[in-house]
């Protein structure tokens, strides 16, 4: 099994895709962090926008902005699966390992590892921007006051989960472009609507994004009122449920299908 996981990671790290996606993700999060730093404490039309940089709430908000990188991990997962069909390398994969379930399991575990590595990269970027930003503005950086241990755990869990989501989606759709478009629409349209609009939040909190927010305790008011989230343990359970669901989809669609 370890040989298969190593082979899957070798597949991932022998093409350019991983570092292109990593770079795009870090740039995206740097952009969000830049806005968080620039707009902290600024009042708009008399109403308070983001909390000030020296407050624990700001550090928590800035730390949680890393969750916007999950879309790129989703795409990574989608490509890990669909590239096998697009370039028909799935043939060589199954000729080498005809028992397909271990192949799917190895791919899912490799996806989790890759997702966690991306998550660690995000956390490093956040550490080198958020900590100086707090200290330079005269605040005290306190991980516990900003709930950072929990936010960090939630971020890592979300990155691992969205990699699984991508692999499951890729196994289901198989057409690379369609799967990536699907992932983007899901993340930027459907989940955004359901987690941001208060009326839809009773549904949104059960979606992966809502569950990840619950786990990260991102129950801050970003202008539309405090989101109605599950408790943190509930978010963790929902995320674990989705992980199992995507893994089941990936194996069910792959194990029996004819490779022609």
């Amino acid at each position: 099994m370890t040989a298969l996981i190593r082979a899957e990671l070798q597949k991932l790290f022998t093409t350019r895709l991983w570092w292109v996606l990593l770079l795009v993700m870090l740039l995206l999060i740097a952009l969000f962090l830049g806005f968080a730093i620039a707009l902290a404490g600024v009042t708009q039309n008399g109403a308070a926008g983001l909390p000030a940089r020296d407050t624990p709430q700001w550090a928590q908000l800035a730390w949680g902005s890393g969750s916007s990188g999950t879309i790129l991990v989703t795409i990574l997962g989608v490509v890990m699966m669909t590239a096998e069909y697009r370039y028909q390398t799935i043939t060589g994969t199954f000729l080498t390992t005809p028992r397909r379930f271990p192949v799917v399991a190895a791919k899912l575990l490799a996806g989790v590892i890759a997702g966690l590595l991306f998550g660690v990269a995000v956390l490093l970027l956040e550490a080198v921007t958020v900590i100086p930003a707090v200290i330079l503005s005269g605040g005290t950086f306190s991980p516990s006051a900003s709930h950072l241990p929990q936010t960090t755990a939630g971020l890592l869990a979300a990155f691992a989960l969205y990699a699984l989501f991508g692999i499951g989606l890729g196994a289901l759709v198989r057409n690379q472009v369609a799967a990536i478009v699907g992932a983007v629409v899901w993340t930027y349209v459907i989940e955004q609507i359901f987690t941001a609009i208060p009326v839809l939040q009773p549904v949104g909190r059960w979606l992966p994004a809502g569950a990840a927010q619950a786990l990260m305790r991102m129950d801050l008011d970003a202008g539309l009122g405090r989101p109605d989230l599950l408790p943190a343990w509930g978010g963790a359970l929902v995320l674990a449920g989705y992980a199992l669901l995507f893994a089941a989809v990936a194996s069910a669609t792959t194990v029996r299908r004819d490779i022609t």
Binding site: K11, T14, T15, R16, L17, A83, Y87, Q88, T89, T91, G92, L95
Partner: peptide
């Protein structure tokens, strides 16, 4: 086994 000649990732 040798199947189709196209079953390679072009970037690898």
């Amino acid at each position: 086994a040798v199947l189709e000649a196209t079953s390679f990732h072009p970037g690898r």
